[in-house]
């Protein structure tokens, strides 16, 4: 464990909690892409099946349980409890355009052709593009609630911090996982446009609105 990985995990946890609180407090999931939330639930489910097979640490197990729990709680909020506030008309990204290539690639490029490892690889590739429906929805509506931009900021920051974690682990432990690193780079690059808008607008107190 190193400081980048710990702050990365905490940033990820903060993002997940911010989203749940935003929906719970405003009793609305306006501006939230249910499709991205489905993809995140699939990412956690396919990645954390090793909860059933191996124990790494109490921290590892508890964080996985929290992530999975919050992911499904978010789905419950978006598609059941606060379904009336879900903006399906703007959440139209074709997720099959993500699932098929990612599914195919996880069979072609992986560390080991075993079910758990292919599912792990699938979850890594899927996570790198899972935010696209959310970013697409913001570009369609042309704006995002400020609390939603904070959610996206911490979500993007977490994988950026993981990139530093992998530099740290390569230097100090000689550990590196090319699949996670390349996917993590793609994932972080997809946020660059949002990071620019967040830093130049939201942090200056303005609302995040895209040129319509």
């Amino acid at each position: 464990m190193n400081v980048f990985r710990l702050t990365g995990d905490l940033s990820h946890l903060a993002a997940i909690i911010i989203l749940l609180l935003k929906i719970w407090k405003t009793r609305s999931c306006a501006g939230i892409s249910g499709k991205s939330q489905i993809l995140f639930a699939v990412v956690f489910t396919s990645r954390y099946l090793d909860l059933l097979t191996s124990f790494i640490s109490l921290y590892n197990t508890s964080m996985k349980v929290i992530y999975i729990g919050c992911a499904y709680a978010t789905l419950y909020f978006v598609y059941m409890k606060f379904k009336a506030t879900y903006d399906g008309n703007h959440d139209t990204f074709r997720v099959e355009f993500l699932l098929v290539p990612v599914g195919g690639l996880s069979f072609l490029v992986n560390h080991d052709f075993s079910p758990l490892e292919i599912l792990w690889t699938f979850s890594i590739y899927l996570e790198s593009v899972a935010i696209l429906p959310q970013l697409f929805m913001i570009s369609k509506t042309g704006e995002a609630e400020t609390i939603t931009t904070h959610y996206l900021f911490f979500l993007g920051l977490y994988r950026a911090l993981y990139l530093f974690n992998w530099i740290w682990r390569f230097y100090f432990e000689g550990f590196f996982d090319m699949i996670a690193i390349v996917a993590g780079l793609v994932q972080t690059i997809l946020y660059c446009d949002f990071f620019y808008l967040y830093i130049t607008k939201v942090l200056k107190g303005k609302k995040l609105s895209l040129p319509a």
Partner: peptide, 10 residues
């Protein structure tokens, strides 16, 4: 790359 036993990262 040797397939290390499981992945220790979240």
């Amino acid at each position: 790359l040797n397939a290390e036993v499981g992945h220790d990262e979240l």
